[in-house]
Every structure is written in structure tokens, then in C-alpha cells.
Amino acid sequence: MRSIFAFVAGGLFGLGLAISGMTDTTKVQGWLDVFGAWDPTLAFVMGGAIIPMAIAWLLTPNRTPLLGGSFPEKSAPKLGRNLVLGSFLFGAGWALAGLCPGPAMASLTFGHMGNIVFVIAMLAGMVVAPKFKSALDTAVPAE
């Protein structure tokens, strides 16, 4: 049952990404290109997504998930180096290709070699990330 709901959620996510145009790298790069031909589509997507998600969060207190377990705790507001540096690296890659993990997976079957190359590199990055992180911790210990 968990897998069925996960498939439905993943499927809706993919449909939403394709319908919203977030699988089109020009829209993502256009949003980030403030000094070029700026494209505000991404703001509409974010706004549209936050509404149902915020309602979902409002339903969570004093309840449990439909399929059991418990809702994820709100993490302590720890704004360490990893959050900032990691987000910075991610943002740079996001702009270079116009792809982030969700849309990269959603457009994997769209028949473009570039999408496949990106996903392979992204998976490789995820494989080395733990090593990268521990090397970073050794070189510059976190506070």
C-alpha cells in the first residue's frame, strides 16, 4: 500500500513538472537569468505548489499518516555550513543545465541525450557526496 501511494505521489509530481514546463530547461534558466530575458513561470509553479502543501502541513498536528508511522518532525533551525555551501553548489549546477533532480528524472524518457548525461553525472555526484562531505569536515571542521 505504501508503494501504491508512493507511485501515485511520484506520478502526480512528474505530471505537474511536465505540465508546468519545469522540464524545459529554458524556463528554469530564464527564471534565474535576471539580467537577460527573465521568465517568471517558476514563481507561478512554486506558488501553485506551496498552497496544497501548506494545507497538508496544517492537517498534520495531532494526527498520524494514513498508512501509519508519524509525521516528520520540524528539524532544528540549524543553519550550518553544509546547508549554505551545499545549496550554493546545487544552485550553480541547477543554472548551468537548467535541471534539478525532480525534472531531471521526469524528462528522462523524453528522448534527449543531454538529459541522460545529466542524470548519470547527478547520480555519480550523489555517490561521491558522502566522501566529499567527510573530506570537507576534515579540511574545515564544522563549528
Binding site: N82, G86, F90, G93, L96
Partner: peptide, 13 residues
């Protein structure tokens, strides 16, 4: 380069 940055960056963040 972009894929590596996205893979590493999102996991660190």
C-alpha cells in the same frame, strides 16, 4: 559539471 554539482550539492544541503 552541472550534474555533479547538483548531486553533491543537494546531498550536502
Amino acid at each position: 559539471a552541472a550534474g555533479l554539482l547538483v548531486g553533491i550539492g543537494t546531498r550536502i544541503a
